[in-house]
Design a protein around this nucleic acid. Structure first.
Length: 582
RNA sequence: CGGGGUGUGGCUCAGCUUGGUAGAGCGCUCGGUUCGGGACCGAGAGGUCGGCGGUUCAAAUCCGCCCACCCCGACCA
């Protein structure tokens, strides 16, 4: 490919509003352009990266016997009604009517189509197991697209589905996918951790997420360097900490320096206009971990549906919303100020559990210690609050885990990281096959629901994660397997016949030898071409310049910046070596 | 959906407070000089200042409504 004929619109300046490194570099290197919020055009070089990732995925899917097909993006509403998701999913599902007025949806994932297909084509246990996949556009009307191509409303996903006769058989398909996914991410040069996930709207029980560490990531995980435990912060079991409650440490720290309070004494103290934990903590000169965070929420599902209740976590902890949702057996929301006033007789900011008639869910760490909480009267907080005083309290793991917590498996301190979710896998079980009637007959002629699994990889997220993990001040440093080109051949002076002739023949020879070459034959000043080459980040740069007459070119490894002069006769060998280690 | 912000040549932005002639850098076109790390000189092209309405002798600038995009939050197979 000649650069003079390629649409590769590199730009010097970062796009306005871009924060993520991958976003800036993908735009600057001429890989993508934004059409609308969360909707992108993949330019030729960007599309080559996507195609290379797709090729790796295809190889690994084929290797485990997964069959490629193509399922439509436009779906009739019927199958979504059958699965139950037409009603469950909100505005995230793009919906429209066709000319006849029939309800249609743009598929955000393809469980429905797969199950519909299985329901009509699979009849016997003899046809199972099956694994199907496609690489297809997904449409989701995200409330808030962001971070470049990390969260978009339209994106390419490889999604595969396993169909099995039993849960044991599903476990095998699941394990097979895990092995394939490890190879995919390794070959793409993206470092990932597999963590326990929440199955969310996908349903089913077991799920895992593939997380690539990156500053731009939207998720947060904790992981243990000792035993390998890793989980999303909202899933991880929040272990005990080494530090005892403030109330059990020395008297000096149990006393607020500024207000001279002793948190062991039961009583109300005046805390004018201190509505947040931070306010009170500063006002009283106590650490935030000496406080109780009392949140009034309203259950929207489960046994307590419609009723207000109180959730308690320590002042420096974050309420684990997923954990509360699980404990309640349904959704919940924060109570409005009016609801708080009705339920607790005080406005938010001064709410506390002593006294309260509401059901109380408290985090495990609060079994111990004495705390400062809202006093249930405006501008007052209450000291000497311990959970012994609240007999109706149910203790559960109610907070998000965080760095520094003890590993629930081995007790070591957990590490934390921001991550990009590049893939996920779910054991769906019969969540879709049952309502949609996807069944098979076993050896005894008995009918059973097909046991399903689903497995996704976001191709653009893999590309973005690769950039997040491999870049420098000059631009992208692509892993060789997914680089838009393997070799970036730079002709320094297009007007120099010797250089031009050598470069042109190298372009032909290297291409014929199987290298994927971008030949920068543009008649531009050398600086521009070098900058573009670094920005684009192909693993090997071959520079045809001053020593062209001697048949010597310069080989530069993008990753290390290391340059060596190489006689053209030895170039192919040197290139193979270089690419093998990128 | 709540909070905040931005919309001005292709790109990144200034100008708006205090109304009166639309600007810069980059990019682009032409000519010339340069040529191993985003060269230089000269000459050009290119803008209904997001849209609609209002105030005014006069609106990029002030006011109202709408739209789009960005950020934080809620939400999120």
């Amino acid at each position: 490919m000649r650069a003079s004929q390629l649409l590769l619109p590199t730009v010097k300046e970062d796009p306005a509003g871009a924060e993520a490194v991958s976003h800036k570099l993908m735009v600057r290197a001429g890989l993508v352009r934004q059409l609308a919020a969360g909707i992108y055009v993949y330019l030729p070089a960007g599309w080559r990266v996507m195609q290379k990732i797709a090729a790796i995925i295809r190889e690994e899917m084929e290797a485990i016997g997964c069959l490629e097909m193509l399922m439509p993006v436009i779906n009739p509403s019927d199958i979504w009604e059958e699965s139950g998701r037409w009603a469950v999913i909100g505005e995230e599902l793009f919906r429209f009517k066709d000319r006849k007025g029939a309800d249609m949806a743009l598929a955000m994932t393809h469980e429905e189509v797969v199950t519909w297909l299985a329901a009509r084509e699979i009849r016997s246990y003899r046809q199972l197991p099956q694994m199907w996949y496609h690489i297809q556009t997904k449409e989701r009307d995200e409330a808030r697209p962001r971070s470049g191509i990390l969260r978009t409303r339209e994106f390419l996903m490889k999604d595969s589905y396993s169909l099995d006769i039993s849960h044991e058989a599903l476990e095998k398909s699941y394990a097979t996918h895990i092995a394939a996914y490890e190879r995919v991410f390794k070959r793409c040069g993206v470092d990932v951790m597999m963590v326990e996930g929440d199955s969310g709207m996908m349903g089913g029980s077991v799920s895992h997420e593939y997380m690539a560490a990156a500053e731009a990531g939207e998720d947060e995980i904790v992981f243990c360097a000792g035993c390998g435990y890793a989980a999303n912060v909202d899933m991880a079991v929040a272990g005990e900490e080494d530090e005892p409650p403030v109330s059990e440490t020395s008297p000096s720290s149990a006393e607020g320096a500024a207000a001279q309070v002793n948190i062991l004494d039961e009583g109300d103290i005046h805390t004018p206009d201190c509505r947040t934990i931070d306010d009170v903590a500063r006002y009283l000169g106590l650490p935030t971990r000496a406080f109780l965070k009392s949140l009034v929420v309203v259950a929207e599902g489960g046994e307590l549906a419609g009723r207000p209740l109180m959730a308690l976590v320590r002042g420096d902890h974050q309420l684990g919303e997923l954990k509360l949702r699980k404990a309640l057996g349904g959704e919940f929301r924060l109570a409005t100020p009016e609801e708080v006033l009705n339920a607790q007789g005080v406005e938010p900011g001064y709410v506390g559990p002593v006294p309260t008639t509401l059901p109380v869910y408290a985090d495990n760490v609060l079994r111990r210690g004495t705390y400062v909480a809202g006093a249930n009267k405006p501008h007052y907080h209450r000291t000497g609050v311990s959970l012994d005083q609240i007999p109706q309290a149910t203790f559960i793991d109610l907070r998000d885990a965080r760095r520094g917590d003890a590993c629930p498996k081995c007790g070591r301190d957990l590490d934390g990281a921001r991550v990009i979710e590049v893939g996920n896998i779910f054991q769906l079980g019969t969540k879709y096959s049952e309502p949609m009637g996807a069944t098979f007959l076993d050896e005894d002629g008995k009918e059973h629901n097909i046991v399903m699994g689903s497995y996704g990889i976001g191709l653009a997220r893999v590309a973005a994660a690769a950039i997040e993990q491999h870049h420098d001040d000059h631009g992208i440093v692509w892993p060789a397997n997914i680089a838009p080109f393997e070799v970036h051949l730079v002709l320094v002076r297009a007007s120099d016949d010797t250089q031009a002739t050598l470069a042109t023949s190298l372009h032909e020879e290297l291409s014929a030898a199987g290298f994927d070459v971008l030949f920068d034959d543009r008649d531009l000043s050398p600086g521009v071409k070098f900058k573009d080459a670094d920005l684009l980040g192909c693993p090997a740069h071959v520079v045809v310049g001053k020593r062209a007459a001697e048949g010597v070119v310069e080989l530069k490894e993008r990753a290390s910046g290391e340059r060596t002069d190489v006689p053209v006769g030895e170039l192919a060998v040197a290139l193979r070596e270089l690419l093998a280690r990128s």
